[in-house]
Write a protein that binds this DNA or RNA. Structure first.
Length: 469
RNA sequence: GGCGCCGUACCCAAGCGGCUAAGGGAGUGGAUUGCAAAUCCAUGAUUCAGCGGUUCGAGUCCGCUCGGCGCCUCCA
């Protein structure tokens, strides 16, 4: 199956053609670990996970690389502002190194809860300082840099295609409109490759370099690490749409200047998750974390379902109402799987009819990851009266291996924990006895009591069972 | 000021020129139940913000108007 991806570079949907037959190199910008990731941050990782599953399913051997930015970055542009890592360290009374590990661990935990598979390679910026220095040296040798105010800058005027992907040439940027202008720059769009003139206190993260003690610029890490693990040219680069004009633009300039060739073939950018009050961001304080959703009683997978319910290139406004809707839908799917499972196991092979469903699903998935249609496909197969339960299960599990809602595991998980509480069984027996004696006051009392303990009674013609709420 | 996106039923949301406008949630009616829950069945836009235009044909293309959002700053 051919995959179609919307390529920001060219602004059109294109057929994915790998550089190397049967392989796909995928680089995704990872988190800066100075704070908890918020649920908006999790949107790209979720869609990238689906992309990776899809590529793998369609027969590509995927190498997925993600960086962990554990080097301090500024809270503002230029030389202003405070280093995020240092700020966090001061506030938490921890070293910057500990801060980085702490939030990196929290990040992996969030990914796990969202059923996002780990990248093939995850690389910390602090472990790759030499690679970055090497790339800056190459750029210097090729004449793309200048030193000013102690920092090494990339001279964007030396790179004629600067801003091509972002279509920057069409825009009249309002220079200095909201940020002070860095007088050390020759051109507005120039950016720092290596800092040596830091004014920060507590510079724990400093490395020796040909230009003096300092630390790398904001954009060089992705270029250096992606080149190291995926080569000078690779297939797909993912990230948030906000990265288009600055971060990815600078990455392209650096990488293509240093490597002397085209760098990335497909740029896949996800749109933002918004709050009703506007963009979700740490600085605005209007953000939620996966943990805060869990604290409110949601399953992290409810949020995954919510994300899958909209297309990744559309803005999505988060609301508790839509999360409720996603939870209802997801729980319903899990219940249906559970019911089907009681009728038997999933077939190993898909029959003709089931295959038609799978084909449609694959087509929608391959159509620039149209996950809303994929979910609709799941629902429509469930309604099919001519399809056997075992075929339905086979389809659902196959589809879910691409969407990652963990339906099979969720349907089974309740059974296991169910066995643990012995007195739950006793209460149910007591309730059934009460019902037999038409003592409904007592039976309803027990039902309420169990519900308070997170257990919902389900009366069926075959008898009484229960499930976790 | 410049660039870009969006406006589809009560809510979320597909749709990218052509069969009866996906799907989910909520609601309503019915079956089932001691009552619930769950489940099953049924039910929803002559219409896609508005107005013009192109076309045999437009939610889908073009223009304008109104409304919302994002970017131009580190940001997912």
């Amino acid at each position: 199956m051919e995959m179609h991806l919307y390529n920001t570079d060219g602004r059109e949907s294109q057929v994915f053609k790998p550089i190397q037959e049967g392989k796909a190199g995928l680089y995704c910008c990872g988190p800066t670990v100075y704070n908890y990731a918020h649920i908006g941050n999790m949107r790209p990782y979720t869609i990238q996970d689906v992309l990776k599953r899809a590529l793998t399913y369609f027969g590509y051997d995927v190498t997925h690389v993600m960086n962990i930015t554990d080097v301090g970055h500024l809270t503002d542009d230029g030389d202003e502002g405070e280093d995020k890592m240092i700020k966090a360290a001061r506030e938490k009374g921890m070293s910057v190194w500990d801060i980085a590990r702490f939030f990196e661990d929290a990040f992996w935990k969030d990914l796990e809860r969202l059923n996002i598979s780990r990248p093939t390679v995850s690389c910390r910026a602090t472990d790759h300082i030499e690679d970055m220095i090497g790339m800056v040296k190459t750029l210097e040798e090729k004449g793309y840099t200048y030193i000013s105010g102690g920092n090494v800058y990339f001279d964007t005027s030396k790179f004629p295609e600067y801003g091509k992907m972002a279509l920057l040439d069409r825009q009249e940027l309002k220079e200095g409109a909201r940020v002070g202008v860095d007088d050390n720059k020759r051109n507005y769009s120039d950016f720092v490759l290596w800092f040596t003139n830091s004014k920060f206190e507590n510079q724990a993260m400093v490395w020796d370099s040909p230009w003096g003690k300092g630390y790398p610029g904001w954009h060089i890490e992705c270029s250096a690490m992606s080149t190291k693990y995926l080569g000078k040219q690779f297939d797909i680069h993912c990230g948030g749409i906000d990265h288009v004009p600055i971060h990815h633009t600078n990455e392209i300039a650096q990488s293509e200047a240093a490597n002397g060739c085209r760098w990335v073939n497909y740029w896949v950018h996800n749109e933002f998750l918004l709050m009703k009050t506007g963009k979700m961001s740490k600085s605005k304080g209007n953000f939620l974390t996966v943990q805060s959703l869990v604290d409110e009683g949601y399953d992290a997978l409810d949020y995954r379902y919510l994300l899958l319910g909209g297309h990744y290139r559309s803005q999505l406004v988060f609301s508790w109402e839509s999360l409720d809707a996603a939870r209802s839908a997801r729980e319903s799917l899990v219940r249906k799987v559970k019911a089907l499972l009681q009728e038997g196991e999933a077939d190993r092979e898909l029959g003709d009819k089931a295959q038609a469903y799978m084909n449609a699903f694959e087509e929608h998935l391959a159509d620039d990851l149209n996950t809303p249609r994929c979910l609709a496909d799941m629902w429509s197969l469930l309604k099919d009266k001519e399809l056997s339960s075992s075929q339905k299960l086979a389809l659902l599990f196959r589809m879910d291996s691409l969407l990652g809602l963990n339906l099979e595991e969720s349907a089974g998980a309740e059974e296991e924990t169910a066995e643990l509480d012995g007195d739950v069984e006793a209460l149910i027996d007591e309730r059934n006895q009460a019902r037999k004696e038409k003592n409904f006051a007592r039976s309803d009392e027990i039902r309420d009591e169990l519900l308070a303990r997170g257990i919902r009674i389900v009366d069926t013609p075959q008898g009484t069972t229960w499930e976790k709420v």
